[in-house]
Design a protein around this nucleic acid. Structure first.
Lengths: 222, 222
DNA sequence: GACTTCTGACTGACCAGTCAGTCATAATTT
DNA sequence: AAATTATGACTGACTGGTCAGTCAGAAGTC
């Protein structure tokens, strides 16, 4: 055979890509296992031996992909949050450019559905719960989460609400002053689902809809 | 020295009472220390050595009053919840017997003030947070809490709301179907206070009032 | 001095993080 | 294409430290 004076660059790149992909796969497997363990036990009580076993990997392997337990935890949260932010931003932005002014209510329904379907109905709700439960013990995380999610989200909600007030869709400025009131039921639904659902199941979608109907004038029925 | 033919029954009772009181005191001191540690670190990461140091007591002493770490934790929560339940029940019951039908809104203001003052403004908010954050990991606790607090509280709220609907004070039956919507902002306020207050302080009282104004028809201004 | 209460050094289980060694696969040589 | 060498991802036994829970004895009380 040709002496193949060193592998061609092409072949080498391909090889590297395969490696990377494998690596990314393993990383993802570890993250998935970590999500299950952390959301079941919490940060402090989760054991990396269990994460490794669940991922079908030796413990040492975890340390090839993550600096330590805390890094694994934080990267897990960040990786899961980003898609949700993007999703919400897309819906909020998309609804803002072209639709008619009085669309806030419709927009709210759509966002609520999305949230129920993509967060409350999936393991992502555990991510939110982890942020809520571990946040106070990880100042870095709380700060990141406030900066990247909370402050932006509330600002968006606030300007939307102000618009609706100006257009007469909302009569009170309560939601402008406290946009937290808009999302409060979503948090409550998450906590309910993870603690009390087995005693008394909650229809999160219906709850969110009832909430929205409450915020807007009630005589309009969709 | 006088042989003191055995302490008189009276003195003995007194003595026993003093003992009990001392014991109860020490117990209370330990519980207070435990509250601080647990709410700062969470159950798993809290160290009993620290609880002991904070209480000014040796570690062994804790085990004279509590079976183990978990018992200390659960008794802490239960002990702190009871007064709050009693308080809320008193207000709800008191307002129910004599005042005129349309008092729900006023009642809501009063309960909200009480909650802001007695829970959100004190360390009790940490108790609520601990229940929310550790609940999923302590099925016994979640079940106790659901049975003793949640189901009762929601039932009371629900019947109140139904009454208000019948009297025309509330136009929608959303709150009857989902009494969770009434308390959702309170939970949100607690989580906010413990995570984001340093970035953006929240006026919990104003938030609760705005919420109540939203629930009832907005044109009535108190 | 009998009894109770309290102490804090101690023990053993447990677990995050390490690292010497393995092995499948790729690169190179013949 | 067979043999040889190199690579680095992966492993899991091991270490060092931590901490819940214990217990022998000190301190206090009558």
């Amino acid at each position: 055979m040709v002496i193949a004076a060193r592998k061609s660059p092409k072949a080498k790149a391909k090889e590297a890509a395969r490696r990377m992909e494998q690596g990314a796969n393993k990383r993802a497997v570890i993250l998935a296992a970590a999500l299950d363990e952390f959301s079941q036990k919490g940060f402090a009580a989760a054991r990396l031996d269990d994460v490794a076993r669940r991922a079908g990997v030796a413990k040492g392997t975890i340390y090839l992909y993550f600096k330590d337990k805390e890094a694994l935890f934080q990267e897990l949260l960040r990786a899961q949050i980003s898609p949700v932010i993007a999703m919400l931003e897309a819906v909020l932005a998309g609804g803002g450019t072209d639709s008619k002014p009085a669309a806030l209510r419709e927009l709210a329904y759509r966002v609520a559905d999305l949230f129920v379907e993509q967060v409350i109905g999936t393991k992502r709700k555990d991510i939110v719960r982890l942020i809520l439960t571990e946040g106070p013990r990880f100042p870095k995380l709380a700060e990141f989460y406030y900066r990247e999610v909370i402050s932006r989200g509330l600002a968006a909600l606030r300007s939307r609400a102000a618009l609706a007030v100006k257009d007469g869709e909302l009569r009170s400025d309560a939601l402008v002053r406290f946009p937290q009131l808009i999302v409060a039921p979503a948090l409550t639904a998450i906590m309910w689902k993870s603690m009390f659902d087995k005693f008394e199941p909650l229809d999160a979608r219906a709850l969110m809809q009832a909430h929205i109907d409450n915020l807007f004038d009630r005589e309009e029925r969709s």
